[in-house]
Amino acid sequence: MNGPPAASGPDAAVISESLEQPEAFGELYRRYAADIHCYAARRLGDAAADDITADTFLAAFRTRMRYDQARPNARPWLYGIAANLIGKQRRSEVRALRALARTGHDPVAESWAERSDSRVSAEAAQGELAGAIAALSAGDRHVLLLVAWADFGYSEVAEALSIPVGTVRSRLNRARRKVRAALGNADPTHVHDFLEVPGRG
């Protein structure tokens, strides 16, 4: 027996449809679960990412009636929920980053290695970068990693974190400055790729 057709159209329309047909919400999961999982895994490791992803969509489903239908794209909303859940595990994230900074080895280490190339010592640079990011405030770290890993523009970060665009800009500038200072103002290729994200409104 065939099930109902998959919901289609903008995310807001899918959420609206799900108010009457809850199974339609599964379309948002199909669209974004892999990306949310990847983002959470880079920050907390694979094991925690499974829980963060499941909890993100559960929270989104439970609060979908409050979604602002004027926003056709639900991606910032979902990442904002994920960021809040990750924030509740801030100690775990900071511990993982500090372990990587100290030893060069951590379950999250492969995420950092993706940013390296043959021109730098990946292990050494990973540790330095991880230590610098661990030292950031939670707010600055959220902004930096949404820009660097979720490829969000300023307005999307602002929407995800419910903060003004000006705050996004100041937090991002501060985070970049602190990370560069912690790295001795060095600009290894993968750090350049990590930090030099063009401003997008």
Rank of each mutant, 00 (worst) to 15 (best):
D68I: 06
V143H: 02
A182Q: 04
Y32D: 08
Q21A: 07
W77Y: 14
R71F: 11
R200Q: 15
R200Y: 10
N73T: 13
F57A: 02
I163Q: 03
A82K: 00
R71S: 13
N185W: 12
G131F: 00
R98E: 15
I81F: 06
A134V: 01
E159C: 08
A70V: 15
L44K: 02
S111W: 09
R169F: 11
P5V: 05
L85V: 00
S118G: 08
A54M: 13
L78T: 07
D68C: 07
E156P: 03
S137R: 06
L78P: 07
P188T: 13
R42E: 14
M65E: 13
K178V: 12
R30A: 13
W149Q: 13
A124E: 13
A7E: 06
S155E: 10
V94E: 08
R43L: 15
P22M: 03
A130W: 00
S118H: 07
V147P: 03
R171K: 08
S162W: 07
E128A: 09
G184C: 01
A33P: 15
S116C: 08
L145F: 09
D151M: 03
H190R: 09
V197S: 09
L172V: 05
L195V: 09
L183A: 07
F25I: 09
L145W: 02
N73V: 15
V143A: 04
R62N: 11
R102G: 04
A70R: 13
R75N: 01
A186C: 06
V179D: 03
H105I: 10
R169Y: 11
A150V: 07
T63I: 07
R71L: 15
E123G: 10
I86R: 00
R66A: 08
A125S: 12
Q21H: 11
D51C: 09
P4S: 13
V14Q: 02
A12R: 03
Q126P: 04
A70L: 14
A12L: 10
R43M: 15
R174V: 13
L44N: 04
E128W: 10
H190I: 13
A49H: 04
G127D: 00
L58H: 05
H142P: 02
G9T: 05
A158C: 06
S121H: 09
R171D: 04
D151T: 09
V14H: 03
A12H: 07
A186R: 12
D187Q: 11
R177D: 14
A134W: 05
A41W: 00
R177Y: 10
N73R: 11
S155G: 03
Y79V: 06
S116H: 04
A101K: 02
G199L: 13
Y79L: 11
K88F: 09
D106C: 15
Y79R: 02
H37G: 02
V168G: 06
A54R: 10
A148H: 03
N2L: 14
R42M: 15
A124I: 14
A181I: 11
Q89Y: 08
L183M: 14
V168W: 12
G131S: 06
E114M: 11
E159K: 01
A74N: 02
F152Q: 04
T63M: 08
L195W: 04
R174I: 11
D50A: 12
G80R: 04
A47W: 13
L195D: 01
N84H: 09
R95S: 11
Y32K: 00
D35L: 14
S116Y: 12
F25P: 02
T53H: 04
G166N: 10
P22W: 00
A6R: 04
A60E: 03
I52G: 01
E17L: 12
